[in-house]
């Protein structure tokens, strides 16, 4: 199961990069980057997964004393939580700049943006 999830994550990264490299529409490139983002998060989460264990939340079935033997690695989860939030911030920034570029040039084709400054 971990291998399937990890392979999917790697494939999503590759698909995202392919989309970003072959599409020339700015919005499509941003969509592709967000797919690669999801793939990276998936890989990190599946690294933290240990087969046969449960989520890192203590309750009556997973007591504090038995936690070390019952839970999966919580650190990748904390990292990915951060990464998702930062990812949407970066996406919002890219979209805002796209709107600005469209306003100036009235096109979304990246090949039309040849100058250094708009």
């Amino acid at each position: 199961m971990v291998y399937i999830a990890m392979a999917t994550g790697f494939l999503l990264i590759l698909i995202g990069f392919y989309g970003a490299l072959t599409n020339r529409n700015l919005l499509r490139m941003i969509v592709a980057f967000s797919i690669a983002d999801t793939g990276i998060n998936l890989v990190i989460i599946s690294v933290g997964y240990l087969p046969g264990r449960t989520a890192p939340i203590l309750d009556t079935t997973v007591t504090a004393a038995a936690a070390a033997a019952r839970i999966i690695d919580p650190v990748p989860q904390a990292l990915v939580l951060t990464a998702i939030v930062i990812g949407v911030g970066v996406t919002a920034l890219m979209l805002a700049y796209t709107l600005k570029l469209y306003e100036k040039k009235r096109t979304l084709d990246i090949a039309k943006f040849t100058e250094l400054k708009w």
């Binding site: 890192p56 939340i57 839970i71 904390a78 951060t82």
Partner: peptide
């Protein structure tokens, strides 16, 4: 109780 929250 939520260890992820404690870490974050």
């Amino acid at each position: 109780a939520n260890i992820v929250t404690a870490i974050i």
